[in-house]
Design a protein around this nucleic acid. Structure first.
Length: 856
DNA sequence: CGGATCGAC
DNA sequence: CTATGTCGATCCG
């Protein structure tokens, strides 16, 4: 949008809000000068929370600059020379790759929203107009800009600048319609043109130009629109006697000047356009105006970046071309402020300014220095810019990478409201998500507090989510964590957003299982899901509980939780608060499930969670698994933390796994425990705790005969769940393997990692034996996972006898993701997997050997 | 991976 | 009173 025109930012001392001001004030008539504008803005804004935050952000930028300058000080002449050589070598390469053969056009509608509103309401014609609301403006017309009223300015401030300002509410539907009309024209010149928002587009007219030279004049003749096809707006224009086109004749490159033929109009009210790029673009702009009564600006250049900068040159209602010659490109860039370059914003501008770089030619001159101070991606980009290089074709944007929704509101500070708002966002997001058929693995919660500080919290789960319930399930936890974090103070927010990302690529979708249902069909082998006629699930589990040592564990845990629920120390108000919030989020979840149940009453099953023994109703196994998983995880972590904290002889160190004595990964495999059984493996964590869940777990798990029992055994289920395996796929006992063959290529099946360490904990990696400071078990898991994979890959690639002497992960319950995520095996390693898969006596069937390799 | 930040419309 | 909403990219830890 042309009215988002970048404005050179001021130094901090000039006031952070200067960017909103600035005013060319050419006419001298009505309007305000720069100084006045800034004064008014400052008065309106000073002392506000927003302003304070702006100052803070500004200081952060200043710190970055300071850091950079310190770095710069340390650079020796030697280094600089070396960098210069390297960069210049690259420059030569780049120069050789320069491609001037394409003709790219950037079309930009002038003050689009405002122009549409003015078109549709003649009374606004001569007035300063802005589109948006009192709280935020989207755009303003050129009249209003003389008062300093610009896009992205709050309406109430705009009103102070320009009391006569008319603020028209946004009407996207209308803009969309107009935009469509414009696009209908554009598509004739480039069927693959790339729209950027409603009011901008790039076209590659290279092919069109080639064809066009052979076109007869008639094909390039267009008529003035003498009668208004748009009946609603007749009155505005009819008195001018049809559509004269003030635009085209005012244009500083007159439409009809260069081509005598165009003067020779054999038909009244028509105009013939030539065959050059300029003529094409004039034609486009002419047609746009005839069709929509709106004007556009345009840039013509050999690449996308230049075209964009070019369209800015003669706006509004003008066009500009950079001819396809190296010389022309560099001339254009020479004195161009870097801020005009797409991709260089306020911060980058300021940083570069600190280095004395303002124009593109200066950017080129400092290329060696920049290569030392900025990241590879950054300085290479700078180099491209200063050489005027850019993409010469319009690559259609790939698949969507994320989808989000966020809302700003007046302060919300109660947990209840926040949770229900969160749910609402999840619902709305899920709706859009499902409409596009997308599922993502990462849920991000965004919060802005009343001081305008923004926080984002993300959580990645193993299976993709897309429904309200699934998203909310993750989001509510993130929210809960934030609420807990700030307790006992209330979380005071003015914005909340939810984002889902990490979508499956098209490629991955092919492997995506349809297997949830097929799994449910083959459920008979799995007692956990088996709904025995005449018996409730509760009974099933109770029975299991009696025969299984771990059953009693769960009973204990349940009882203990009940107890802690009731006996919460009154002095622990913080804890209480925390618990209260937890509970309320649990209620939300429950609510959700009920809804689901209603919707799918014929489908859903009532299943009792083996951990908390609450009834869970779901027709979705993943959801259920997640619930159990979290229940279980929470208990385990809690226990482990307690144990650790109670043990004074040890620092706050958690040994979730038996310690390897190795110093490094490479050594790991040599010292792998040879056997899988042995309760001592858990000793390091449970030595002083008789009721440690971990110990119980290990006892049960290490009982080999027990382990080989059917999956219907609760302990196995629990273990599987705990291992992030959940019920089906890849870590299934041999007996059941047949049932899961079809899910081989499935992506991971479920489970959220929802550990929440309440304080920084030091965990010891069982593989590399190093201490890992972490606030979340998830990150710790990731570390172990990576460590482990390194070892595995090494072994696999070396074809060592790996599986028979596998790492003992049997009682590594709390380190959930291990072995479960698709091991990020290299292609090379993959080749070894057939052997690996067939290995008979592996004790721990490594799960995802069939999974596609992710990046490694 | 998670979180913050930038930049664009 | 009253300072957007969405998305992709990148950097750092």
């Amino acid at each position: 949008m042309d009215d988002t025109e970048k404005v050179g930012n001021s130094s901090c001392s000039d006031g952070v809000l200067l960017r909103m001001g600035l005013n060319d004030n050419k006419a001298g008539m009505q309007g305000l000068d720069k100084e006045k504008i800034n004064k008014i803005i400052m008065e309106a804004t000073k002392g506000s929370r927003f302003y304070e935050n702006e100052l803070k952000k500004d200081q952060q930028v200043n710190q970055r600059i300071e850091k950079m300058m310190q770095l710069k000080e340390k650079i020796t002449t030697q280094q600089l020379l070396k960098a210069q050589l390297q960069v210049d070598k690259l420059v030569i390469e780049l120069e050789q790759s320069r491609n001037l053969s394409s003709t790219i056009v950037h079309i930009d509608m002038d003050a689009f929203y405002a122009a549409v509103e003015m078109r549709d309401c003649p009374e606004l014609k001569e007035k300063p107009v802005a589109v948006g609301s009192m709280s935020m403006l989207s755009t303003s017309n050129y009249h209003a800009r003389r008062f300093g009223v610009r896009a992205a300015m709050p309406g109430f401030i705009a009103k102070k600048l320009c009391p006569h300002l008319t603020i028209v509410p946004l009407n996207f539907e209308k803009y969309g319609k107009v935009s469509k009309e414009v696009r209908e024209i554009l598509t004739e010149y480039d069927p693959n043109f790339m729209p950027m928002g409603l009011d901008e587009a790039y076209l590659n007219i290279t092919e069109h130009l080639e064809e066009r030279v052979r076109w007869p004049e008639d094909k390039r003749r267009f008529f003035f629109n003498t009668k208004n096809k748009d009946d609603t707006n007749m009155s505005a224009k009819s008195n001018e006697g049809g559509y004269s086109s003030p635009v085209l004749f005012e244009d500083n490159t007159p439409l009809m000047g260069n081509h005598p033929k165009q003067r020779d109009q054999s038909v009244e009210n028509s105009v013939i356009f030539g065959t050059s790029a300029e003529e094409v673009v004039k034609e486009i702009r002419f047609r746009i105006e005839q069709k929509t009564q709106l004007t556009a600006s345009a840039g013509i250049a050999p690449n996308v970046m230049l075209a964009k900068m070019c369209s800015d040159r003669n706006k509004p209602n003008g066009q500009c071309r950079i001819s396809p010659e190296r010389r022309a490109v560099l001339d254009f860039l020479r004195d161009l402020p870097i801020r005009k370059v797409p991709g260089i914003g306020k911060v980058t501008e300021k940083m570069l300014k600190a280095l004395g770089i303002v124009t593109c030619s200066e950017l080129y001159q400092q290329r060696a220095l920049l290569s030392l101070l900025f990241s590879e991606a950054s300085w290479r980009n700078f180099l491209d810019i200063s050489l005027g290089l850019g993409s010469t074709h319009l690559e259609k944007d790939g698949e969507r990478k994320s989808m989000s929704i966020e809302r700003t509101f007046s302060e919300i500070n109660t947990a209840e409201d926040q949770y229900s708002l969160c749910r609402e966002l999840c619902r709305d997001l899920a709706q859009v998500l499902q409409k596009e058929g997308l599922k993502g693995k990462t849920v991000t919660l965004k919060l802005k507090n009343v001081n305008f500080e923004v926080k984002t919290r993300a959580s990645t789960v193993l299976s993709s989510v897309s429904t309200e319930e699934e998203i909310f399930y993750v989001a509510k936890d993130l929210l809960g964590t934030e609420i807990d974090n700030i307790a006992p103070h209330p979380l005071r927010i003015r914005l909340m957003g939810v984002r889902v990302s990490g979508f499956l690529s098209e490629e991955e979708k092919k492997y995506h299982q349809k297997s949830i249902m097929s799994f449910l069909k083959s459920e008979k082998e799995i007692g956990f899901l088996r709904l025995q006629p005449g018996k409730s699930n509760e009974e099933c589990f109770t029975k299991n509980s009696e025969t299984s040592p771990r059953g009693s564990f769960f009973d204990k845990k349940r009882a203990a939780r009940q107890l802690s629920r009731e006996n919460l120390s009154p002095s622990e108000t913080v804890g209480k608060q925390l618990f209260h919030d937890r509970k309320s989020s649990a209620d939300f979840v429950k609510e959700t499930k009920n809804v689901t149940e209603l919707q799918n009453s014929n489908m859903s099953k009532i299943i009792t969670c083996p951990v908390c023994f609450e009834e869970q109703s779901s027709n979705n196994l993943e959801e259920l698994n997640r619930h159990i998983d979290e229940c279980l995880s929470r208990t385990l972590v809690k226990d482990a933390m307690e144990i650790s904290n109670n043990d004074n002889s040890r620092e706050n160190t958690l040994n979730f796994l038996p310690q390897f004595k190795n110093e490094n990964v490479d050594e790991c495999q040599k010292n792998k425990p040879d056997q899988l059984s042995g309760t001592d493996q858990s000793a390091s964590i449970s030595d002083n705790s008789t009721s440690s869940c971990t110990e119980k777990f290990s006892q049960v798990i290490s009982d080999k005969s027990h382990r080989e029992k059917q999956l219907s055994n609760l302990s196995d289920i629990a273990r599987n769940v705990c291992m992030k395996q959940c019920l089906f796929p890849k870590r299934i006992s041999k007996d059941n393997e047949d049932h899961f063959e079809k899910t081989e290529h499935a992506e991971e099946t479920s489970s959220c990692c929802s550990f929440e360490a309440t304080e920084d904990s030091v965990l010891v990696c069982p593989v590399c034996n190093s201490k890992q400071k972490t606030t979340s078990l998830v990150s710790f898991n990731r570390h172990v996972d990576v460590c482990l994979n390194k070892g595995l890959i090494k072994e696999l690639t070396e074809k060592k006898d790996f599986p028979s002497k596998t790492y003992n992960m049997e009682n590594s319950n709390t380190v959930g993701e291990m072995f479960v995520k698709p091991l990020r095996l290299s292609e090379k390693s993959m080749k070894n997997l057939d052997w690996f898969r067939d290995s008979a006596d592996r004790k721990v069937p490594l799960c995802n050997v069939l999974a596609k390799p992710e990046r490694w």
